[in-house]
Design a protein around this nucleic acid. Structure first.
Length: 111
DNA sequence: AATGCTGTACGTCAGTGAGG
DNA sequence: CCTCACTGACGTACAGCATT
């Protein structure tokens, strides 16, 4: 199992995760620029645009965390299944041995 | 050392079902 | 009908390993 560098990446690049550094014209980067720019008076249409951008960011952030959680749950589920396989394989082995022993007893009686 | 391959984690988009 | 959370699919970045 390879350990990825993704979790150590933010340490290597300051404190921003890689996905925030990658695309220079992402909506996030744009919105940061928008928020930082000293736009004093804003027209209703630009306010509306900003609201849309903000909503999008919130949605993306929520979805990002949902995806993380979803993957975590999936990994846990797979681990459970693997455990179950191991248990069932052991049970199967035990039952096969038990059957073999019973067959032996039966054969000796028949003689 | 350079390069290609593989596995892992991530973010985003699009589709879907549940609840209000 | 709308909104929200969940999830599969896709593309991307990166690390580690093998080969040249």
């Amino acid at each position: 199992m390879a350990v990825t560098g993704d979790e150590t990446e933010s340490a290597a690049t300051g404190d921003l995760p890689a996905y925030q550094l990658r695309s220079p014209n992402s909506s996030l980067a744009q919105s940061i620029v928008m928020a930082a720019s000293p736009g004093a008076m804003q027209s209703p249409s630009s306010q509306h645009a900003e609201e849309i951008t903000r909503k999008r960011e919130v949605r993306l952030m929520k979805n990002r965390e949902a995806a993380r959680e979803c993957r975590r749950k999936k990994k846990e589920y797979v681990k459970c299944l693997e455990n179950r396989v191991a248990v069932l394989e052991n049970q199967n082995k035990t039952l096969i041995e038990e059957l073999k022993a019973l067959k032996d007893i039966y054969c000796h009686k028949a003689e």
